[in-house]
Write a protein that binds this DNA or RNA. Sequence first.
DNA 1: ATCAAATAATTCGCACACGAAGTATGTTAC
DNA 2: GTAACATACTTCGTGTGCGAATTATTTGAT
Lengths: 148, 148
Amino acid sequence: MDDRQQRIMQITRSMRELNQSFYHATRKDAEACGITQIQYLVLRALKQHPMIGLGELSDLIYTGASTASGVIDRLVQAGLVVRDRLEEDRRAVALKLSPEGEELLNRVGERMMKRLSPLLQLSEEDVGQLLRIQGQMVNLLQQAREEP
Amino acid sequence: MDDRQQRIMQITRSMRELNQSFYHATRKDAEACGITQIQYLVLRALKQHPMIGLGELSDLIYTGASTASGVIDRLVQAGLVVRDRLEEDRRAVALKLSPEGEELLNRVGERMMKRLSPLLQLSEEDVGQLLRIQGQMVNLLQQAREEP
DNA sequence: ATCAAATAATTCGCACACGAAGTATGTTAC
DNA sequence: GTAACATACTTCGTGTGCGAATTATTTGAT
């Protein structure tokens, strides 16, 4: 058991370290433009999928609806996102970027890409392997989630 | 530029998805024992490194000292961790598990390992690749962090 | 010896992030 | 048509998680 434990701990440790590296690498770029990283993710999602609802958005960014609701609140407050009620279903909302949001997304996106561009030094093969293995892990964990 | 952007976005997306999968897979196991995941990480770190200070702890779990301070506060409150002031340096603290903390760590650890054991289906080679590539990414991002 | 700089924790204010509970609206069964 | 259910979102309470500012103590320079 102990060798197996060791392997799992190594993986979780590596994941955590990498995640923190991502976070700290890009944090300042977002902050310099007055938003947070998750807000950047949301802006990007809304650019690619205009007029979506909150449920679809939270699927896209892998969070719960309540989290997305709060993020959207702050983005609307900041004038970067427009939140409309639908006529055909008055429970639902339709989210889209405001012109200011679109403009800011471009600015932040450029900085983010510049910051993360060193990752392009990874060989194409390594990227493929990474995506394949990570995808497999997601599947394995999804199974594991069901059990009592 | 656009193909490069695409590659970076794929990577960040995969990372985020996997991280969320981890989170949701293990969340309930920790919660069932009355702690959170970061609290579990801290307990594990203190088991392996008894009598460390807050700075060393925050290095081990890849967070800032202020975050670690809050987590420790709640663990002390719950009676799982003992926080002593050092005689030789009265600024510093020495952290260690209480007997209750040790006992709970064993219980949570067992559940966590059982939950994550499907990850052992990954081939040894894939695990090696994963750790190698992720390590490389950490290095690349560390470089990227310095720039203006 | 003394005062400035460094170090170790803590506190503060903000923004996630979660599930649970609540509200409003729509759908379905009868 | 109305009552039960389902859906879309919001609100709530708690716990991260961060950097900046603060406090307490130690070290170092003169």
